[in-house]
Nucleic acid binder design. Structure first.
Lengths: 351, 351
DNA sequence: TTGTAGGCGTTATCAT
DNA sequence: ATGATAACGCCTACAA
């Protein structure tokens, strides 16, 4: 049952609460174009008319219709956000930051999940494209930077968690935390506590940051003059369950170790559990340090020592970069360095 | 630098990859309205033309533009989702379910956070309204059902986690889990393990479900003929930190207890931590049961016994209900009963 | 069953 | 600086 068509032009008010730009113009005694100009700052308008229009806008409670705007001007005031899993404890925080920051500028994020699958990511981007988003923020994922740049049709693009070439003039920006430094600090912390046999729990091999965090681990060992024991390095995939599995394998292989650096907090949770299953206590017998400082890490048992880098802020920065691109400016990265957060899962090696 | 206007009508192809309905019509040798009718099933069309149009759509890779659709017909193929905190470990799961289910029908969710604040919720709904969403899914929140029904302008509305009057003909539907039953099962589990002094950690008093879960707890005690000790009931707010605080108070007051039912998993995490701070082990000295069965609860130490009700499925059902409303049907609730998931935070009372 | 024409609310082009 | 006017891509009342 479609609502009947609106009257044939010239409606000063409508049944629903929708106020149009046209009504504002009428009330202010100017043309719609002028109102539009004022709204967008597209051209200079006499202070007098501007005042009248502002008054009318306020009086009528007018809010521009993003849908109509999208059709007419191409700006939908929405930015597509490709996340991998919307419920991820890690990226979820970033989404919050993105949302808050975009909102301040009147933009709305459209979240679509890529599920760590190329095909899904492509589909997500297509969906977003068909919704005429004004730009893209991509959180990690499988697609390469080059391909991303291509399928996003030249729209402003911010990639999070990917080493970026950030070619100027390409309306594209890469934002990533210093994984290597963070991992190094985590490992140095353990070394400083007297640990020598420090296991490394790798993240998903397909993530760039996994390799970076590994390198940070290696840096720390090298700086301390410690040899690398390949047997101490086990593979995970960044999920909790993989931490359980990897550590179980390590224990089965009877490789002795007194500490472990896990490439992220989630796997660290799994690691603690796997150790507990064998009655190995953390930190009494094995120290563990994670990476990410998820909210949850304050409440695990024991509370997790980890590397913090405010995922929320990453989101904020990503949104800010997008806003800059949207405004034709060049974004400035301003991520704080990752910092070690010492809690209770690590302690001095008892001899 | 706006892109130049498209040519003056009659463009068989365009520079960008955008294929319009008009082009499809041209290629199929029919009028645009016919294509539109086929797309929307608005009227019957001869099989012949339908075939031609389908072919053209496929050949051209045409995808209807939701923005234009929104302007013209009022359907934007997007539904507004008011969540309280997008990064919530609890609601995040529901968002996933909503996203997946809506996508299948070609809808896209627009997530906006209400931050557990009436004003923010109102603003969120206004934003969504101005984006011309086709319907609303509201996850909990502070606004009353009546007010929600009012400010959502009669659009299809699905409310999650709120006892619903689900007035027929109102295009509104309430979906909620059986909190009372779940809480009762959790408490009965503890009673069955021999516990008699069972503390209750309440959730935010402003949430309906907090009262419901309390009632389930009371039901279980009553059924077992156990007296209610008000001293054993402490207030939290559903966040981890409140679990720490509440349990600390309880311990300071020296009220003896051997088990605790926490109104949600997050507070249970905090409770475990608070107990550990006093060297009270779970489950050796105190058993704990949570509610929600968050992903994380498999990996806490110890893994948490809790009441599961697949938050993801709640999201799926909410989306399904929305789709039904959108299609003019009456939604059918089909949430499974909450089930107890026994893990390792609860054990038989040792005498 | 099918086509034509007008309109959805805004922006952009082209005059003035 | 300001105002008509024509799109934007699609839907639908109306006519055929």
């Amino acid at each position: 049952m479609p609502s009947s068509r609106a009257s044939k032009k010239a409606h000063s008010s409508r049944a629903d609460g929708i106020v149009t730009l046209e009504q504002v113009a009428a009330r202010a005694g100017v043309s719609p174009s002028t109102v539009s100009r004022i709204l967008n700052g597209t051209a200079s308008v006499s202070a007098e008319k501007k005042a009248a229009v502002d008054e009318a806008i306020r009086a009528l409670g007018f809010r521009p219709n993003p849908v109509a705007r999208g059709l007419a001007g191409g700006r939908t005031m929405s930015v597509g956000v490709v996340t991998q899993r919307i419920a991820s404890p890690f990226y979820g925080e970033a989404l919050s930051g993105i949302e808050v920051e975009l909102e301040q500028a009147g933009y709305v994020p459209l979240f679509v999940s890529g599920n760590w699958r190329e095909t899904d990511e492509r589909k997500a981007i297509e969906t977003l494209l068909s919704r005429r988003v004004d730009g893209f923020i991509v959180l990690a994922g499988r697609l390469g930077n080059a391909e991303l740049r291509e399928i996003t049709q030249g729209l402003p693009l911010v990639i999070v968690g990917r080493q970026g070439e950030t070619l100027p003039g390409q309306r594209m920006f890469c934002l990533c935390i210093d994984n290597r430094l963070g991992a190094r600090r985590a490992t140095e912390h353990l070394i400083g506590l007297g640990h020598r046999r420090i296991a490394l729990l790798l993240g998903d091999a397909l993530h760039e940051d996994s390799a970076e965090r590994r390198d940070g681990y290696l840096d720390a060992l090298a700086a301390a003059g410690l040899a690398v024991d390949p047997d101490l390095i086990v593979q995970g995939d960044y999920n909790e369950a993989s931490g359980v599995v990897a550590v179980s394998h390590l224990l089965e292989r009877q490789v002795p170790f007194t500490a472990m650096f896990s490439s992220n907090d989630q796997m660290a949770y799994g690691a603690v559990l796997a150790l507990a299953r064998r009655n190995i206590r953390v930190p009494d017998e094995v120290s563990i340090v994670g990476f990410d400082d998820l909210m949850m890490s304050r409440y695990t048992m024991p509370p997790l020592t980890t590397v913090g880098h405010s995922v929320y802020d990453v989101g904020v920065q990503a949104a800010r970069a997008m806003l800059a691109l949207l405004g034709g400016d060049t974004p400035q990265a301003d991520l704080p360095q990752p910092e070690l957060v010492v809690r209770e899962s690590s302690r001095r090696l008892s001899r």
